[in-house]
């Protein structure tokens, strides 16, 4: 099984509410910051244009500085596949995300970086957003293993697909090593395919 440093069973931290649905990855990190050959320093630019246009953006709100668990609405991370988006969130300090739903490529990118994304009912999400805004100093827990989110008085049932949960809990989300274990079976499957053989 995976290295201990990779295990993501429970993540504790303060919560940062970011209301709105269909927040796309162009907004999370504008395309001009894709002109880079490393991900270093990208966290500074997370939501840059949104923050420029909204002086009260949650990422600039002093109450939420140091928060590590992001709460979002539906279809978060839709659009471009850019991994720069979760890299920018991670660079800013986000360690886990709870939302109504996630766009698939974004979700996969987060798991590849060891950032759990859990879904919950929108009624619970709205409660979490309101509570996190009311008590920004409160620490809560995202329990990946038990599929729960604990905040203040409440424990919320949350969802994550079995495969992703297992990768996080076992510490095997950095997939390259696991995939390499298939060994020659990769070439065997490849050469069984008519187009790989040249028909």
């Amino acid at each position: 099984m995976g290295d201990n440093a990779y295990v993501r069973k429970q993540i504790a931290g303060r919560f940062l509410p970011l209301p709105g649905n269909d927040i796309d990855t162009d907004r999370i990190i504008p395309a001009r910051y894709l002109k880079v050959v490393t991900f270093a320093g990208i966290g500074e630019h997370v939501f840059e244009d949104d923050r420029e246009q909204n002086r009260h953006h949650p990422f600039d709100d002093p109450r939420f500085q140091g928060a590590s668990i992001l709460v979002v609405g539906l279809n978060f991370g839709c659009g471009s596949s850019r991994e720069h988006a979760p890299q920018a969130l991670k660079g800013w300090g986000i360690r886990a995300i709870v939302g109504g739903s996630f766009a698939e490529i974004f979700f996969g990118n987060c798991i590849s970086l060891g950032i759990p994304c859990l879904t919950a009912d929108m009624a619970d999400i709205e409660w979490l957003m309101a509570e996190a805004a009311r008590s920004p100093k409160t620490e809560g827990v995202v329990d990946v293993e038990a599929r729960l989110v604990r905040f203040g008085e409440r424990t919320i049932t949350a969802g994550i697909p079995d495969g992703a949960r297992s990768q996080l809990v076992e510490g095997t989300w950095d997939a390259t090593g696991v995939l390499l274990q298939a060994g020659d079976q990769i070439e065997r499957v490849g050469s069984s395919l008519p187009y790989v053989r040249g028909f």
Binding site: S81, G108, A182
Partner: peptide, 18 residues
Amino acid sequence: FGIGTSQVRDVLATQTLA
């Protein structure tokens, strides 16, 4: 289908994806 950069690494290294 589209993938992110860590998965690009996975495909480069293993020609497979999880």
